[in-house]
């Protein structure tokens, strides 16, 4: 089975803040990691390969430095890596990102299954997977908590609907977004890391895309526009207390009584 996993490089911490006075976004731009939810997708892919053979490719869109997450995937057992990187991809929203990645997937060869993580920790939208499937005209299922059966024609999976579990059969080729905890992600292997140190990564630029249409990528291809960013609002009916532990305990109890919680 040929599997393509979509992964993303995200900031290492979520401690970004807007300075309320200057409006400047404060963040350490150098600290990055693989999106934690993608680890589950890579793990799922590698397990499926171990069971039924085939190849695992990973694909990402981002700056050239996103190479590091491809290398991490190699160390977990991925065989091939693709990076979509071009300044024409700058400023892409969900739609433009999905389009660009779907174009990259068309260049990555034949596939049976595309796997995505639940969502990213920097965008938190969970939208890119389903949008990619639309561009590739393949069926998709998200919130998959378990793969029950790997068939010749498709997969039998469980989808978590919060109050119910839907059991579905999905035909290849298809896209599946896996939930956290579907499998425990393995640690990157030192041996694999050494072995894949010089492995070639395929860089894909705008010029390489099968459909070169500037109105579909980057900022030009993004129907949503960020108008402004600002610090979150503060609650104006708030009180702040400090003192000894005894005094603070008393304050909490008073507030609980005042509001009839006890």
């Amino acid at each position: 089975m040929n599997i393509i996993v979509c992964i993303k490089q995200v900031p290492g911490s979520n401690k970004a803040e807007v300075d309320p006075v200057t409006g400047v976004l404060k963040r350490d731009g150098n600290d990055t990691k693989m999106n934690p939810y993608d680890l589950y997708a890579v793990e799922t892919a590698v397990r499926l390969k171990e069971q039924s053979g085939g190849k695992v490719s990973v694909i990402t869109m981002g700056p050239p430095s996103a190479e590091s997450v491809i290398r991490e995937a190699f160390a977990m057992g991925a065989d091939e890596g693709f990076i979509l990187t071009d300044r024409k991809f700058a400023g892409a929203d969900v739609l433009a990102t999905s389009y660009t990645i779907s174009q990259g997937i068309k260049m990555a060869g034949e596939y049976d299954l595309i796997l995505c993580g639940k969502q990213t920790t920097d965008g938190d939208t969970a939208q890119v997977g389903p949008e990619i499937s639309e561009y590739l005209n393949i069926p998709c299922i998200a919130n998959v908590t378990s793969i029950e059966e790997i068939g010749d024609k498709g997969l039998t999976v469980l989808m978590d609907m919060q109050t119910a579990i839907e059991k579905c059969f999905i035909e290849y080729p298809c896209l599946v977004s896996v939930d956290k905890d579907i499998f425990l992600p393995r640690l990157p292997s030192y041996v694999k890391m050494k072995a894949s140190k010089d492995q070639k990564i395929n860089f894909i630029t705008y010029e390489d895309l099968p459909d070169k249409d500037e109105t579909k990528v980057g900022l030009n291809g993004s129907p949503t526009k960020v108008q402004r960013i600002f610090p979150p609002s503060v609650n104006d009916k708030r009180e702040l207390f400090s003192g000894t532990a005894e005094e603070m305990t008393e304050t909490v109890l008073t507030k609980l009584k005042e509001n009839k919680f006890i």
Binding site: L95, S133, N143, M161, P223, T224
Partner: peptide
């Protein structure tokens, strides 16, 4: 933004090549 809405909305948005803002 339920488990269903979070898959259906992006699929529809992509079909209409339009913007979708999550959450």
């Amino acid at each position: 933004a339920t488990p269903v809405g979070r898959q259906l909305a992006p699929r529809v948005a992509a079909r209409f090549r339009t913007g979708l803002t999550a959450d």
